[in-house]
Design a protein around this nucleic acid. Structure first.
Length: 414
RNA sequence: GUGGGCGUAGCUCAGCUGGUUAGAGCGCCUGGUUGUGGUCCAGGAGGUCGGGGGUUCGAAACCCCUCGCUCACCCCA
């Protein structure tokens, strides 16, 4: 077809739009209960915001960003994720002194990946970021909020929480060295891809799906054994506070994050219902990020969730409001019907007024838009100053005075 | 970026090893019913068979290229 949307993008039609809007509405409302207020950052940033923070060896930076020069010659990038821009906004607006800061955001992200179900080049995320809380309570709050949102979306049974700790930079370096040393002894058994990752991004080998890699990794050094005392204590605290709250999780020592700015807690809410695109909400702690952007030393922790993936998991059909259909019969009634429609809409009713047709056609339309009631006005009603209200579920009809039509229709208000 | 599967009406799909006017169900439109919807009945509209090239007397079908979807790898939300 000649007119198709750009690969990896698509039109979100009302049916799906309702679901996605519901995901966003529930997320933002729940976030507000925890004190997280909405922030919106631009859809593109200077490229440096991303390539200096996500990690120069990461796939997103090396081959997935939509980067272009604008007319001034500046290198700009369509945001591939939401955390770095929010951190940038904190620095740009000098917000750090008001810490702790709690933000919720929602909007499109862009990554040039090979499209698949639940994986698009323009994707939509909701996310939260908490700045200025150095202790485990921050991690716990953010995870609890995520779990709460999933619960309200009815997805608790479809999703499990996996947890790991990447430790502080010292622990991370120690583990990295140990892992690289171990893997070099088992080079022959590694997949070709993992071999190239060995010096660029060795931690990535941990979550390889290659069976040979998995076997080697399973017998190798475990991340948790390399956490230094403060890092281990931090992780223990996160776990026991989650236990207190009854948030279920399982520790996965091979869980790592895609971006370099993460440390300590890393977590993912995963589903088995979406094939290879199982991660539905993921995040962690990023204590060095704000500083990497030139800001003050300000710890942070947060997560992002894929709106498409979440709405794909919601199997309940979306509920659409049922309008009231106003149907004029004959030409003289048409003008009155328009005025009544206008008045009812101003009183908060959802009202459908067809554009043409006789009574039969208009009733068909009323049925098609799933109207709950029809307000009919013909010559008889016009003369008497009333309207016939037909309940479209029961078929019962009553006659109501035009002057208090709204009162008579009260039970049909959505 | 790599490999596999698939693109026929708005949707879901038939169409046998190439044979001439490309079908069904659902949906849509019209009428039966110009003061009463859903059901039912009758009729109708709608397709450059994803696009381009090739093979052939003849291509929706075979070949090549291309675009897109999909699954896995990869990556990640």
């Amino acid at each position: 077809m000649a007119l198709q949307p750009v690969r990896g993008t698509r039109d979100i039609l009302p049916e799906e739009g309702i679901r996605m809007a519901e995901v966003c509405a529930i997320s933002s409302e729940t976030a507000l209960w925890y004190g997280y207020e909405e922030i919106a950052t631009p859809i593109f940033e200077f490229t440096g915001v991303f390539d200096r923070t996500l990690g120069e060896a990461t796939d997103v930076v090396t081959k997935e960003m939509y980067t272009f020069e604008d007319r001034n010659g500046d290198s700009l990038t369509l945001r591939p994720e939401g955390t770095a821009p929010v951190a940038r906004a904190v620095v740009s607006n000098g917000l750090a002194q008001n810490a702790p800061l709690k933000f919720y955001y929602q909007g499109p992200m862009f990554r040039h990946e090979r499209p698949q179900k639940g994986r698009y080049r323009q994707l939509h995320q909701v996310g939260v970021e908490l700045f200025g809380v150095p202790g485990p309570l921050g991690d716990v709050e953010v995870i609890a909020l995520g779990a709460h949102i999933l619960e309200r979306l009815g997805l608790t049974d479809k999703v499990r929480l996996e947890l790991n700790s990447l430790g502080d930079p010292e622990s991370r370096a120690a583990y990295r060295d140990a892992l690289v040393g171990y893997l070099k002894d088992h080079l022959d058994g590694l997949s070709a891809e993992s071999k190239t990752r060995l010096d660029r991004n060795p931690l990535r080998i941990l979550d390889s799906k290659n069976e040979g890699d998995k076997t080697i990794v399973a017998a190798g050094p475990r991340y948790t054994d390399f956490l230094n005392q403060p890092s281990a204590a931090f992780f223990e605290e996160v776990k026991s506070r989650l236990d207190d709250l009854g948030v279920a999780y399982q520790v996965n020592p091979t869980l790592v994050r895609g971006f370099d700015y993460y440390c300590h807690t890393a977590f993912e809410f995963i589903t088995d219902a979406l094939g290879a695109q199982g991660t539905v909400m993921a995040g962690g702690r990023y204590d060095g990020l704000v500083q990497a952007l030139g800001g003050p030393s300000l710890p942070g922790v947060g997560w992002a969730a894929g709106v498409e993936r979440l709405s794909l998991l919601m199997t309940e059909p979306p509920v659409k409001p049922r309008p009231i259909a106003v149907v004029p019969i004959g030409e003289p009634a048409a003008a009155v019907a328009l005025r009544i429609t206008h008045a009812l809409r101003h009183q908060g009713f959802a009202v459908d007024l067809g554009y043409s047709g006789n009574l039969g056609r208009r009733m068909k339309r009323a049925n098609k838009v799933n109207a709950c009631a029809a307000v009919m006005i013909g010559d008889d009603e016009l003369a008497a100053g009333n309207a016939t209200i037909r309940d479209l579920d029961s078929g019962e009809q009553i006659v109501a005075d035009l002057d208090d039509l709204a009162a008579s229709l009260e039970k049909y208000k959505t």
